[in-house]
């Protein structure tokens, strides 16, 4: 997973479809921000059908991570700076 491997992440959903991943974020997190494909979250360019929902839960960022053979994972990573950066996009 490249740089994702070095993150301390929790897998929220695995082997999901992109739609399942988006629905999960919008259904389970009060706070989210919509971004375009290719937008960088941490060092990952997110993949998917626009708009792509990124969940925010306190200092946690919940984002989709897609691999060709394994579908979409939803990863949850704690990072106050990245959460603040994403939150600022909503303003």
């Amino acid at each position: 997973m490249g740089c994702v491997e070095s993150m301390n992440y929790e897998i929220v959903l695995r082997d999901a479809s992109f739609k399942e991943s988006r629905d999960y974020i919008k259904g389970n997190f009060k706070e989210f921000v919509d971004v375009q494909p290719g937008f960088k979250v941490f060092d990952v360019h997110v993949i998917g059908l626009p708009p792509i929902a990124i969940g925010l839960d306190g200092d946690f960022v919940i984002f989709p991570y897609t691999k060709p053979c394994h579908g979409t994972f939803l990863l949850r990573v704690e990072d106050a700076d990245e959460a603040a950066r994403l939150r600022a996009l909503k303003k």
Partner: peptide, 15 residues
């Protein structure tokens, strides 16, 4: 041939 492929295609279309 799978959902990930559609996601990659949509991404290429956007970027």
């Amino acid at each position: 041939h799978n959902d990930a492929g559609v996601s990659y295609a949509a991404t290429m279309g956007a970027i």
